[in-house]
């Protein structure tokens, strides 16, 4: 009789300890589940999309400038523009030139000015002068320091018999047909080419053409999935979440086993 009571007492204590453990695990299972629910959803959605990214075209679809700026904080490069009677010449980034928003050519150095001269349009960069046909924008010729261009060009101006450039103290006038240079006094310059603000429509066009083309939606999904979108801390966060998922699985199994032995559900 005494043994039976003793055994009942021991079973009762064991059940009590199991119950406490089950309750404790269940409570933490719920907490961890709540915290990691958003990440489970994120990983599941991005995982499904990544699995089918090529068939739905996400691997080639560019992100677009707004999203690029939002997720990757990439600002578009600066734009400098000069206007003539025929066109708007814009330098976008370090070298690339655009004429009315269309790709024109590379240019050595910063854009310094643009002027009309008869049938030509003369574009001046620091280390190069580009002569264009004003009507079509076709490049006729390039003139660099080897051919006598005073460099670096600081300003492009209009002189009595052609365009002239200033480099340091010297100002030289170009004969665009012969490509010869004549020194002139500063008083000979009737006007200097001055920059104009790049119109929003041109800037937007350049942004849409160039920024955001390099990163696809698939890349964004991969970075979201791995946490790399937040840098190295994002990766650690995803590692922590992975540990939580392991704990969830572990606590879930243990709670289920304890409940099975105890005969009750938590």
């Amino acid at each position: 009789m005494g043994r039976t009571r003793e055994r009942r007492t021991r079973d009762g204590q064991t059940n009590f300890r199991r119950g406490r453990l089950r309750f404790l695990l269940w409570r933490w299972h719920r907490r961890i589940g709540l915290v990691s629910a958003a990440f489970v959803l994120l990983l599941a959605v991005t995982g499904i999309l990544l699995n089918h990214s090529d068939s739905i075209g996400l691997d080639e679809a560019p992100l677009g400038p707004q999203w690029l700026n939002l997720f990757y904080s990439v600002d578009p490069p600066s734009a400098t523009s000069f206007e003539t009677g025929h066109s708007l010449i814009t330098q976008w980034g370090a070298r690339a030139l655009y004429r009315n928003g269309e790709p024109l050519s590379d240019c050595r150095g910063e854009l310094r000015g643009v002027l009309d001269y008869y049938q030509y349009e003369v574009v001046a960069c620091e280390q190069e002068l580009i002569i264009l046909l004003a009507e079509s924008g076709a490049v006729v010729e390039r003139v660099d320091p080897v051919r006598g261009l005073p460099a670096p060009v600081e300003r492009l101006g209009m002189c009595p018999a052609g365009v002239c450039v200033q480099s340091g103290e010297q100002i030289r006038q170009l004969d665009a047909d012969e490509v010869t240079w004549t020194p002139v006094a500063v008083s000979a310059v009737s006007r200097w080419s001055t920059p104009v603000p790049t119109p929003d429509v041109v800037r937007d066009e350049l942004v849409s053409q160039h920024v955001g083309q390099s990163i696809s939606w698939e890349r964004l999904l991969l970075d979201l999935h791995s946490g790399r979108l937040l840098g190295s801390w994002g990766v650690y966060l995803m590692d922590l979440m992975a540990v939580f998922f392991i704990l969830l699985a572990g606590t879930g199994i243990v709670v289920w086993l304890l409940a099975r032995r105890g005969g009750t559900k938590p």
Partner: peptide, 20 residues
């Protein structure tokens, strides 16, 4: 070719070109 015209010097059958 990155231009519509090319400059040169010439004397008889001899010509000189600067190209990039």
């Amino acid at each position: 070719y990155p231009g519509l015209r090319v400059r040169y010097w010439r004397l008889g059958q001899r010509s000189a070109w600067i190209l990039e």
